[in-house]
Nucleic acid binder design. Sequence first.
DNA 1: GCAAATTAATGATTTATTCAAG
DNA 2: CTTGAATAAATCATTAATTTGC
Lengths: 231, 231
Amino acid sequence: MSPSASTRWCPTPEQLMILEEMYRSGVRTPNAAQIQQITAHLSLYGKIEGKNVFYWFQNHKARDRQKLRRKLSKQLHHHHCQLNTSLLCNHHHHPHYDHQHMMMNNHHNYHFLSFLHPQSLPPPPAASNDLQLAYYNPTSSLIPQGGFGGATTQVMSTNKWTTEMLEKTTVEMERLSKKMYGDDHKPMTTVAEVGSTLPGRLSRPSLKTLDLFPTTATNLKEERNNLELSI
Amino acid sequence: MSPSASTRWCPTPEQLMILEEMYRSGVRTPNAAQIQQITAHLSLYGKIEGKNVFYWFQNHKARDRQKLRRKLSKQLHHHHCQLNTSLLCNHHHHPHYDHQHMMMNNHHNYHFLSFLHPQSLPPPPAASNDLQLAYYNPTSSLIPQGGFGGATTQVMSTNKWTTEMLEKTTVEMERLSKKMYGDDHKPMTTVAEVGSTLPGRLSRPSLKTLDLFPTTATNLKEERNNLELSI
DNA sequence: GCAAATTAATGATTTATTCAAG
DNA sequence: CTTGAATAAATCATTAATTTGC
């Protein structure tokens, strides 16, 4: 079949590896600008669109949660261990869903999906009325959560993190790509500059310890489904 | 506060009326092209963006369902009436959710959200790889569900329905607008041509009678939530 | 070995929930 | 309290693994 006949995106190993590294490094819900960036970068390794990146993070995050939920519920059923489950709980009954979320997103990011039509790149941050606040800056711990006031002044530092991360993965990927496929594989372009200093996961915010126990049912969906059978 | 300081869209009465009329007429999940159209039209009556239209339909649909569910569950609890509930049930355990859905959406519509950045209008149908199939054509019952083959050939009839509907509502709205606010209200533009023949709800597909009883839990969410408390 | 048949993963969409402005 | 906005969960659909019968 013709190569463009596939109905859905099929990530190349390099793309996957980069995405996973970003995920491991804490990226969860990239905003529009970040997605654009990531997409641009990943397109060096194969066809890809913004929505693919968006979906990938959505799905990966969701399935991660799911996996943890499953694991936890198994534990709970097996030896009735009740606490010490300090990692989990993405329920959002309270103002901000979780640390990750707070770090990676301000509440009014219109990040959303400005990228379906790839030909129309949103002029980075600057224009229009959708405020693209910087919400994470690796050099200065966390953006003060305040929100709106200095919208335009905070814009400058946006995407630094992602950018550096991408730059870093570039070198790795070139190496890997050659190792796996030989010198003539995908990379249509050679990335010019690197000069990265992004320390993989050192500058990354220490991984959160969240609410100790679920007060909502979110984490019990599977059990719930079982229960329903006996209603 | 300055007129552009509002953080969220506030629909004008005309906009609302048009949206509601479209909803009543069967529109549930307009695709990108339709949203563009609707947005363009509604912007005659006030500031509006594509995402507003998108959200409006999402929310309206959801809250409609919710209202029906609530009503139904109340009925069930009050006098144990068991059947004759032929309107409702948006559960989807079977290939196609419901008639509405099938009529208004083909399965591979990327309709999605190609409109966040309003400055970048997606060149109507024509370009790129996101196929914009026509999925409903009021003059010719239903588009054969086949799907992919003639993607580009089906594009022509897209949006006919919405267009006519919008044209129709235009006259009504002008009338209404004058009645309510006088002649100098919003309409920044006078709509030139009308010549519509769209018969409100006559050409609209007869309202479906769906599965009689929910086999999944979707419709019982509220009951389920109650149950959870007693786990 | 090797295709057809099953099953597991995962990309893509829609629906349900939630937050918060007005 | 209503409802615009946004995220998470559930679901659908296709591709990849894996199994199975030959």
